[in-house]
């Protein structure tokens, strides 16, 4: 299934609903599960579309506005489509001190994108992130859920797949 198709799914899956209800079950009210619910759905869909947002808000018995206010507050909730893998590049001080900028420039060259953008094949979205807690192995970044560290501008590009055709 490609992104476009993914976006079309409006209602939540049974699995998503079950997981959300599970979170709610140990909270004093449904609205308190807002962030968990957003993360659950994003876990399956990569991002939170308007349709997902509306569906989640319904489950939590809150307004879309209230939920969107929460969703847009947090860095790791994506309200725009992102690539298959989100690349979180640490731009905080320890990594910067270790030439993180140069490493990042190399990544941007390789992926032909800037921060906030997604590669044309839909594989990667590059975002800056605050310190990943790996400062003794700076510079560091995450590709998807995988942490990479001791990065080097010369060979960081190898960590990424070659840009391919736009998945169909």
């Amino acid at each position: 299934m490609n992104l476009a198709e993914e976006n079309m799914i409006s209602a939540l899956s049974e699995q998503e609903i079950t997981e959300i209800e599970e979170e709610i079950s140990h909270l004093p009210n449904r609205q308190s599960a807002a962030i968990d619910a957003l993360k659950i759905v994003q876990g399956y869909r990569g991002w939170i579309s308007d349709e997902s947002l509306i569906a989640i808000a319904k489950i939590l018995q809150m307004s879309t506005e209230e939920l969107d206010g929460i969703a847009t507050f947090y860095n790791l909730i994506f309200r725009y489509p992102v690539g298959e893998k989100v690349v979180l590049f640490c731009d905080s001080v320890s990594c910067w001190l270790m030439d993180g900028d140069k490493v990042c420039a190399a990544i941007k060259r390789k992926l032909k994108i800037d921060y906030g953008e997604t590669t044309s094949d839909g594989k990667y979205t590059l975002l800056p992130v605050t310190c990943l807690g790996d400062c003794d192995h700076a510079p560091a970044m995450m590709i998807g859920e995988e942490l990479h560290h001791d990065l080097d501008a010369a060979n960081v590009a190898q960590l990424f797949d070659e840009p391919g055709e736009k998945a169909s």
């Binding site: 909270l27 609205q31 308190s32 599960a33 807002a34 962030i35 968990d36 957003l38 993360k39 206010g69 929460i70 507050f73 947090y74 860095n75 790791l76 909730i77 992130v129 605050t130």
Partner: peptide, 24 residues
Amino acid sequence: HSSAGRYICGEETALLNSLEGKRA
């Protein structure tokens, strides 16, 4: 509880708001 990101969540009262599912 795994956070949805933002440094301010580390501030203890913002953290509580975040745990309550609110803006931190």
